[in-house]
């Protein structure tokens, strides 16, 4: 098998030279400082992984990755940036739909691991036709709402009420009971549910069922938490509150569609695989959550 292709974009040549040396043994490495050139390469060649800087004079990395998503959907997208600003990280989720958001300076071994994983996933998804017929569904898709905001629940009901079973969880315990009954297709969640930080629940849900699509609607503007949720929960949308009804409705539709696609093409599941949870407390919480979920399921007989 030929080497997978890795496309690197950064406005600093020295970064490109350095990364090329890190990867040239296992990969066909292409580097450029010009986003335009990167788009040309994506169009003409089979690229497994694209890893881009965020702040570049001609184009933001998140914008380049959005174009990459349209030009070459099977290519895995990674952002490598030294600047953790909120707008960039939101754009990288919503537009770039990045697999990982990595920070400069990076750990060579970690980046190698991420790129290797991404390359393997890309190889598998090249084989999948992106617009396969949705399989005939057996069960109604379920949407789990973890947000005390009534406006959110109302929009979800109005948008998906006719097609989905909708569950509005008032607290972590309730959410767990619902998850024990049956997997969910789409989660719409704030980051705080009353006093509970639900980050660990989102991370656990994605570990339990990679098909689940997560939309975060929140007024919390914490870039480092968002980056964690990208890498460890693969949230697919981050919508800052107040979010307009139209935007939430549109994203709900596209995430439901995404869920159907991923379910019909299990090879695509891996594209949203997650990193292990880094926060020690959250790891414990997630462990307890899974343990209790298992007991509940055994009792219900799922």
């Amino acid at each position: 098998m030929s080497k997978p292709t890795l496309l690197l974009i950064d406005d600093e040549d020295r970064i490109l030279r350095s990364l090329r040396m890190l990867f040239f043994v296992g990969y066909n490495v292409r580097t450029t400082t010009e986003p335009g050139e990167a788009i040309r390469i994506l169009r003409e060649e089979k690229v497994h992984v694209i890893m881009s800087d965020q702040r570049m004079p001609q184009m933001q990395g998140s914008e380049l990755l959005r174009i990459a998503r349209e030009t070459s959907p099977a290519t895995m997208r990674i952002l490598l940036t030294g600047y953790s600003d909120l707008d960039a990280s939101i754009a990288s989720v919503n537009e770039g739909e990045v697999f990982r958001y990595l920070m400069k300076p990076w750990n060579a071994e970690d980046v190698k691991k991420v790129v290797a994983e991404a390359a393997a996933i890309a190889e598998a998804s090249f084989a999948v036709q992106s617009h396969a017929e949705p399989a005939t569904e057996t069960a109604k898709p379920r949407v789990l709402i973890m947000d005390h905001d009534e406006a959110t629940a109302k929009t979800v009901h109005e948008t998906l009420g006719d097609r989905c079973e909708i569950v509005w969880a008032s607290d972590a315990q309730h959410a767990m009971e619902e998850l024990a009954k049956q997997d969910v297709s789409v989660v719409v969640s704030d980051l705080m549910l009353g006093e509970t930080n639900v980050g660990y629940i989102l991370k656990t849900i994605k570990q339990l069922n990679p098909q689940t699509q997560c939309i975060v609607v929140t007024s919390f503007n914490d870039t480092s938490r968002l980056i964690e949720l990208i890498n460890q929960a693969q949230i697919t949308r981050f919508l800052p509150k107040p979010v307009s009804k139209g935007i939430l409705a549109r994203n709900l539709e596209s995430m439901l569609e995404r869920f159907h696609l991923v379910r019909s093409q299990p090879a695509l599941q891996k594209r949203q695989s997650v990193e292990p949870i880094s926060n020690a407390q959250e790891r414990v919480q997630a462990g307890n959550f899974i343990g209790m979920l298992g007991k509940l399921r055994a009792r219900i007989g799922v």
Binding site: E12, R14, I15, L80, G82, Y83, K104, W106, A108
Partner: peptide, 21 residues
């Protein structure tokens, strides 16, 4: 500080990587 930190992150990125290589 945020601005300068970003500027430091870029050279720090390749210096660290080069040393690892």
């Amino acid at each position: 500080v945020a601005g300068v930190a970003h500027e430091i992150n870029t050279p720090l990125g390749y210096v660290q990587n080069n040393v690892a290589i």
